[in-house]
Simulated scan of single mutants.
Amino acid sequence: MSTSATARATNGIWLVAEREISSKLRSKAFMISTGILLLLALVGILIGGFTSKNPEATTVAVTSETASVVEALPNVKVTEVTGRDEAEDLLRSEKVETAVLPGDGPTGYTVVALKDAPGSIVSGLSVSPSVEILDPATTNPLLRYFIAIGFGLVFFMAASTFGATIAQSVVEEKQTRVVEVLLSSISPRTLLAGKVIGNTVLAMAQIIALAAIATVGLIVTGQKEVLSSLGAPIIWFAVFFLFGFVLLAALYAAAASMVSRMEDIGSTTTPIMLLVMAPYFLVIFFNDNPLVLTIMSYVPFSAPVGMPMRLFVGEAQWWEPLVSLVILLASCVAAILIGAKIYENSLLRMGTRVKLAEALRG
């Protein structure tokens, strides 16, 4: 290709990309939904952070004999009583959750409750044996679960939202015959590249905005340890998402080019949607399963979720993200080549759905 032809193709790609970006930014529905998403993410992080930092104190009735030992327990609010009768009155009126009174047991205390004794009080006053863990957990299981939901949900929502946008744009241009006008000026591959780049820019902007929101939320709630442990995984998530989305975007565009009506989009894009949904459900249900996470981290469609998750819990070696990224890049190139061929061969074919074999043959 000559220099002038390359320049024309490059200009065409950026013109299409700018058109995709500007049309989205002019959409009130897109801007409102993005704002709501960012607001919900911030509110969720703030509520979770403040709740974990400031759990509600357990109200406990104590006597002068038990006050000192109960006051030494974390997160308790003590009400001193003169004896058992007054403690029971407070329990029945639900002014306190439990009472710690002198007793004849091995600890010298008795825990009295109306229905269920708070586990934190019982464990705090119990005599526990020494514990030795052979294979300690690297992260808090609840935190691990929420981080898994976060990675899975962000990937699922961004990939499905912008993937569907590409598919609808392709079919709309075919249905209105606009594509014929566009192809009189630029090649199908230039049009495809512009659509993929434009929507990738939008998707990455949303990912960066969510990462910034998460960082602000964690700083405000004082969760610096969580933030420091999430730094590298978030960066790797952004890198993997970039190439993973390009792969999916090329497939979405190719699948959509095989139909000519909006009603038929689902018939060709459903398999891709399943590929997008799979990592979300797998990382939620198997976030504590090292084998499943390892497999996910090397499969191109799930690597953007699986590998950052393994990095967060400390189960991945330093070289594994690099190997996984090479596999993803190779898959991305293959998807672009195949997707471009399908797109080029199907874009001007109107009427009935184009079969995959026909689209690949041309």
Rank of each mutant, 00 (worst) to 15 (best):
L142A: 11
I133V: 15
G103V: 04
P118W: 01
G119H: 11
I133E: 11
Y109N: 00
S120L: 10
I147V: 06
R144T: 11
V131Q: 07
N140W: 11
K115E: 15
L114M: 13
G105E: 05
T138I: 08
T139A: 11
I121S: 00
V112Q: 02
V111Y: 01
D135C: 08
S128A: 15
S130M: 12
A113N: 03
I121G: 00
L125E: 02
A137S: 13
S123V: 15
Y109Q: 01
P129I: 08
S123Y: 13
Y109I: 01
A117M: 06
P136I: 06
P129E: 11
S120D: 12
G103E: 02
G108P: 00
S128L: 15
A117K: 02
S128T: 13
T139P: 01
D104G: 04
I133T: 15
T110P: 02
L114H: 08
V127G: 08
K115S: 15
G103W: 04
Y145W: 08
L134N: 14
V122S: 02
T107P: 01
P102C: 04
S126N: 12
G119C: 05
V122T: 04
V127L: 15
L114Q: 08
G124S: 07
S120M: 10
P106Y: 11
P118A: 11
P118N: 09
G108A: 05
